[in-house]
């Protein structure tokens, strides 16, 4: 599984599996043709929902309700996108939604929130996990393997098991002094009000959403450690002889060498945080000022009238919230494909 990607690639190119040459019989050719057919069908199935969503978003809601199932809308419109972005006037809202009072959903604010959350988590997690990975891969200290195993065991824990206590922790943080015997005994004596902690709200805040993923995830440490282990020691040692300290070496030797992997991890982390739904559901508490796109979209759906939901707008919003992920993928797709073949875990 964790075989080196380059050898995989090499094998893939050099070792031509023989079927192409030896089985030139008619039956084999039919088989290959059929297999290509199935593969194409699967590719179409993979992208069709996105195309259909786009077709839906480019249609006015009244036209949708008439039940047309042509592949292309008869009169393509950009009004739904405009409407979701909050840039449509009343007449345009009426025309594209088919009703006076279309469901309100501040897409731009939710987008802003997601960008803030995903960026903060990615920056913190990648850097701090990199530091930890450096310690586990390049330093020697007592109990290193044991501590790493303890970190790894975090991979086994289902998120919801720690989200419940984390939700309670967020409530604790807002009033340290009163809650629980453990907090009382350990932290009750500290005059938290001096630090303006007691009045600080954690539920429905960015820091509540971001902090649990800000410092590390077991996966990030594991992923980077694997790469740091393979870096040649001689480069590092040369720097030490020149009198560089460990932080210098980390910053100017390890980080530049491992930059591609750091970027890969950053992309994976960004996409994961962009997609995160459960923790914001726990902790955002329905506060639109901090809710990311995922939970906002879910709420948007539940607010629709059951008889005739505003599908055109829902699909426009859905597509636009997937757009940044699509863009990242267009640029870094190859790197992601390689990293999945390498790590096999995420």
């Amino acid at each position: 599984m964790s075989a080196d990607t380059t050898t995989e690639q090499d094998q893939g190119v050099s070792v031509e599996k023989p079927s192409a040459k030896t089985d030139a019989s008619f039956g084999a050719r039919v088989g290959r043709g059929a297999a290509w057919g199935i593969l194409l069908v699967i590719m179409v199935v993979s992208v069709f929902p996105f195309l259909w969503a786009f077709r839906t978003a480019a249609t006015t809601n009244p036209e949708l309700l008439s039940g047309s199932s042509d592949l292309l809308p008869s009169e393509p419109t950009e009004l739904n996108f405009k409407r979701v972005l909050g840039r449509a006037n009343d007449a345009e809202i009426l025309e594209s939604s088919g009703r006076e009072n279309a469901g309100q959903f501040d897409f731009l604010k939710a987008l802003r929130n997601t960008v803030i959350i995903a960026t903060a988590i990615t920056l913190g997690q990648t850097f701090f996990s990199g530091m930890a990975a450096y310690a586990f891969a390049r330093l020697e200290f007592k109990g290193r393997e044991k501590l790493f195993l303890v970190y790894l065991s975090g991979l086994m824990i289902p998120p919801i098991f720690i989200f419940i206590p984390n939700l309670i922790l967020m409530k604790d943080l807002a009033n340290w002094t009163e809650s629980g015997w453990l907090n009382g005994a350990l932290l009750g004596w500290i005059p938290w009000e001096w630090f303006a902690f007691t009045e600080v709200q954690w539920l429905g805040t960015f820091k509540g959403i971001v902090l649990p993923f800000f410092f590390m995830t077991p996966f990030a440490v594991f992923f980077l450690r694997q790469f740091f282990l393979n870096i040649n020691r001689s480069i590092e040692e040369a720097a030490f002889i020149d009198g560089a300290g460990h932080f210098r070496v980390f910053r100017s030797v390890i980080l530049p060498i491992a930059a591609p992997q750091m970027v890969t991890l950053a992309i994976l982390t960004y996409v994961t945080s962009w997609n995160e739904y459960l923790w914001p559901l726990f902790v955002a508490g329905g506060n639109v000022e901090v809710q990311p796109l995922t939970t906002s979209l879910g709420t948007f759906l539940t607010q629709q009238p059951g008889t005739s939901p505003d599908w055109a707008a829902i699909m426009a919003a859905t597509l636009m919230s997937a757009l940044p992920v699509l863009a990242l993928f267009a640029v870094f797709g190859r790197r992601l494909v390689d990293s999945i073949q390498f790590s096999g875990i995420k």
């Binding site: 996409v271 796109l293 699509l326």
Partner: peptide, 18 residues
């Protein structure tokens, strides 16, 4: 390979809505 990876990258909420 990339095409078939596309759905996996999408937020689950987007998948559900689609």
């Amino acid at each position: 390979r990339s095409i078939m990876l596309l759905p996996w990258l999408m937020p689950n909420v987007v998948v559900a809505l689609l």
